[in-house]
């Protein structure tokens, strides 16, 4: 079953078309990476899903129910983490979760237990009774996830949750998303591609107001798979020496050789050659399309 179905969604801001017949499906249990350059319309799409912004055309269904602007009953299925979540600084995380849970209709009996569970999950148990005003950005982001999950939503929407964080903070968020995978479906927008590779199983690339690329991550990769292999050395001189002994490649960078048509057998031969020449490369690897190259390719079209 699809938790989220977007069909032919259109949105214009004045003269500028932001979304053009965007269609997208997120199946239950997926962690869906919603990729696109800045200004591609990711946040706009998410705001329309949440009923915070009116669409000019098209339809959105969450768990089969149609989303309308303003009055947002479908939000009971959804947890939302904004890119920079803002809180009432005078409340403590426990009080804030009690407020959010109560508003989302969680019964008072289960609310306290659920809040404790989530504070544990996001690593804020020790700060549960401190005022939020003293929190760092990373802590706020983690509290943002907790508030989004308080009512056990079917769909968690995260708008660039890692963009404003340092590497440690990013890792925390990714780990939390992994941990909740069994509980909820996730739509995760970002332009940080390594984060997508670490956690998502499906991707959709938004470009020019529509999906330029979508599907399971490995399928998308396989569709754009490239042959060949790469050998990278520490020194340029080593690269030049090896290229003359084992031709058929080209210098991708001064110290990196690319054999674009090399097969598996060619790569084994190259490794034997390296051993014979007593050369130790920094790395030798089969070429795999990186998300970055797919991103650049699709964005260039």
């Amino acid at each position: 079953m699809d938790v989220l179905e977007i069909t032919n969604l259109n949105k214009r801001f004045g003269e500028r078309t932001v979304l053009q017949d965007l269609s997208l499906r997120v199946p239950e249990g997926a962690i869906y990476g919603f990729i696109g350059e800045n200004g591609a319309g990711k946040t706009t799409t998410m705001k329309i899903i949440l009923g915070l912004l009116a669409a000019d055309g098209g339809e959105i269904r969450i768990c089969g129910e149609k989303v309308g602007y303003g009055q947002t009953r479908t939000n009971r299925f959804v947890g939302y983490l904004p890119d920079v979540p803002e809180f009432y600084g005078y409340l403590t995380p426990r009080e804030y979760l009690a407020l959010c849970g109560g508003l989302a209709g969680v019964s008072s009996d289960t609310l306290r237990k659920r809040a404790d569970e989530l504070l544990e999950l996001v690593g804020l148990s020790a700060s549960a009774n401190r005022r939020i005003s003293g929190f760092s950005r990373g802590m706020k982001q983690r509290l943002g996830i907790a508030q989004a999950l308080i009512h056990r939503p079917k769909l968690l929407i995260c708008d660039e949750p890692t963009s404003a964080l340092d590497p440690a903070g990013r890792k925390d968020i990714i780990d939390i998303l992994r941990a909740i995978k069994s509980e909820t479906t996730v739509l995760f927008s970002t332009h940080i591609l390594p984060d997508i590779e670490r956690v998502c199983d499906r991707i959709g690339l938004l470009h020019g107001g529509r999906l330029a690329l979508s599907g399971r991550l490995e399928e998308v990769r396989a569709m754009h798979a490239k042959s060949g292999f790469v050998v990278e050395f520490a020194e340029e001189s080593e690269a030049v020496t090896f290229l003359s002994a084992y031709p058929g490649g080209e210098q991708d960078t001064p110290s990196k050789l690319l054999y674009p048509t090399g097969t598996r057998a060619d790569m084994i031969a190259a490794m034997t050659k390296l051993g014979g020449m007593q050369l130790c490369p920094l790395k030798i690897e089969q070429r795999e399309p990186s998300l970055e190259s797919l991103f650049m390719e699709a964005s260039a079209e």
Binding site: L52, G70, R73, N75, G79, P82, E86, C100, L103, A104
Partner: peptide
């Protein structure tokens, strides 16, 4: 200005 209402409204509270 601070965007504090977004979290509450996306819980299904009417404006």
């Amino acid at each position: 200005q601070s965007g504090t209402l977004v979290n509450l409204l996306t819980k299904g509270v009417s404006r």
